[in-house]
């Protein structure tokens, strides 16, 4: 019995040392990671709606979105949020900015794990740029009667992006404080 206690103790000491080292490394890297992430998201938001102050809010459906306001006049310039939906082989996350009339200002694919060479092409400007200026009712892929030209060989990815954007925009539109129709 004593022998097993000794074994357990040795293993325990190794675990404690390892934990100590990891806690130290974490204390060094965690702030770097957090700061990088915050800057990246902030930059993405500012690229979509420049010169605005962002205020974080949550919709009734549980969607986190940001209201962009003019820093001086407090006039609402637009909204940004990250829309997510299951694509072909991964969850595709798209950051979108819309103006106060809910027309799309621009989109950016934040995260995707789609097929390289097919669905993964959704990050290319040739695909994302076509969303600029679209109104909610236009955001369907061309196969579903909309104006979004689907990526060749990746209709499912394209459809998932279009649908998640449209649903997200409708969700934000319906928020009472944005004057949306209830």
């Amino acid at each position: 019995m004593k022998y097993y206690l000794k074994l357990g103790l040795i293993l325990f000491i190794f675990c404690v040392v390892a934990t100590g080292i990891l806690a130290y490394v974490n204390s060094l890297t965690a702030p770097v990671i957090a700061q990088r992430k915050a800057t990246e998201e902030k930059q993405a938001r500012e690229a979509l709606i420049p010169n605005a102050e962002f205020e974080e809010k949550e919709s009734d459906q549980g969607l986190t979105y940001f209201v962009a306001k003019d820093p001086e006049t407090a006039e609402i310039l637009g909204y940004t949020f990250i829309a997510a939906d299951l694509g072909y082989s991964s969850t595709v996350q798209t950051m979108v900015g819309v103006d106060s009339g809910f027309k799309v200002l621009g989109i950016r694919i934040v995260d995707q794990g789609e097929t390289p060479g097919l669905g993964a092409n959704c990050t290319l400007p040739a695909f994302t740029n076509q969303f600029a200026g679209l109104a909610v009712e236009d955001i369907y892929v061309n196969k579903d009667g909309g104006v979004v030209v689907a990526l060749s060989g990746a209709t499912i990815t394209s459809r998932c992006i279009a649908n998640s954007l449209r649903e997200g925009i409708i969700d934000v539109q319906d928020e009472p404080e944005q004057g949306g129709e209830q």
Partner: peptide
């Protein structure tokens, strides 16, 4: 008797270090 678990702890610790450093830089 406990060499394998000890090795696993050592390896896992270094892997976590690599993981965190790569995520940061």
């Amino acid at each position: 008797k406990i060499r394998i678990p000890v090795y696993v702890v050592v390896i896992a610790a270094f892997v976590s270090v690599v993981d965190m450093v790569m995520a940061a830089y």
